[in-house]
């Protein structure tokens, strides 16, 4: 597959298009088939009653358009603000602590097992505790997102700063680099690159956490909107809100992947196998 891709990329644009056309057409056919199945299922399930269980694609699209025209921007900004603050705090904390744990053998041996023991407890499990601690406001959500991001990035940070080759460090010190210089020019770049990759991987974990935190706390943001329309049994609006979630996650991921390819082009492998 990779080889095909490389061969196609080497060809002229027209050839490239011709080679990819069948695949694109098949993809469109698949998407159309999925939409057709959805429409048929919604017709079959149209039972009347209070709850319109499965609205058709058009109804959902209409609802999505209405939401985008209405409160979507406000909710998105509110969610993004929580997400951005938490994400930055999580990345910074993970980088600092990762540097300490990765560079000091003793600190690593003492505290890394503790970090490893906490890691499997997903940040989602912290939701009730965080609400007890920080209430329903911004604080608890920022804490949860920060925690989710931290737990992912810490692994990358420790890995990045402990995997500077020993030979390289010895050479640098032999050539007369001071401790601070070595840190600045060897260890820090190696760490930051891994942190960058980790913080992209953490995007989805953090975004998922924002959703759960807002579903539970439900005071503002996309998650609160989702709970609001759920409580009024408005299935088309619920599905539209889900789609808006998916789209925002997709856009963020695409932007960051592009940025990462620009900054660390040699780590293509890492960019590709993110979940």
């Amino acid at each position: 597959m990779t080889m095909n891709g490389a061969a196609a990329a080497a060809g002229r644009p027209a050839q490239r298009l011709a080679a990819r056309l069948p695949g694109v057409l098949l993809g469109c056919a698949g998407a159309l088939a999925a939409i057709a199945v959805w429409s048929l299922a919604s017709h079959a399930l149209q039972g009347g009653g209070v709850l319109n269980r499965l609205p058709g694609p058009l109804a959902v699209l209409r609802e999505l358009a209405r939401y985008v025209e209405g409160d979507f921007a406000r909710d998105l900004v509110s969610s993004l603000r929580v997400f951005a603050i938490g994400w930055v705090l999580g990345v910074v904390a993970a980088t600092l602590i990762g540097l300490v744990l990765g560079r000091s053998a003793l600190a690593g041996a003492v505290f890394l097992p503790v970090v490893e023991a906490i890691r499997p407890v997903s940040s989602i499990a912290w939701v009730p505790l965080s609400i007890v601690w920080f209430g329903f406001g911004l604080g608890s959500k920022v804490f949860l997102v920060g925690l989710a991001v931290f737990l992912v990035v810490i692994v990358y940070a420790v890995d990045g700063c402990s995997r500077v080759p020993t030979d390289l460090e010895r050479t640098a010190s032999m050539l007369g680099m001071r401790r601070l210089q070595r840190f600045r020019h060897l260890i820090l770049p190696s760490t930051l690159i891994e942190v960058l990759i980790g913080s992209r991987v953490a995007l989805m974990a953090g975004w998922g956490t924002v959703i759960v935190a807002e579903l539970v706390a439900a005071d503002s943001g996309l998650g609160a909107h989702l709970i609001g329309v759920e409580q009024s049994y408005d299935v088309p609006a619920v599905m539209a809100a889900m789609i808006s979630f998916g789209l925002s996650g997709f856009v963020m991921n695409a932007l960051f992947t592009r940025l990462e390819r620009h900054i660390v082009p040699w780590r293509r492998d890492a960019t590709e196998d993110a979940p």
Partner: peptide, 15 residues
């Protein structure tokens, strides 16, 4: 579909 994280489905599954 993969980009609609599972958590976003929770309200719908409740409905």
């Amino acid at each position: 579909l993969r980009f609609i994280v599972p958590f976003a489905w929770i309200p719908l599954t409740i409905l």
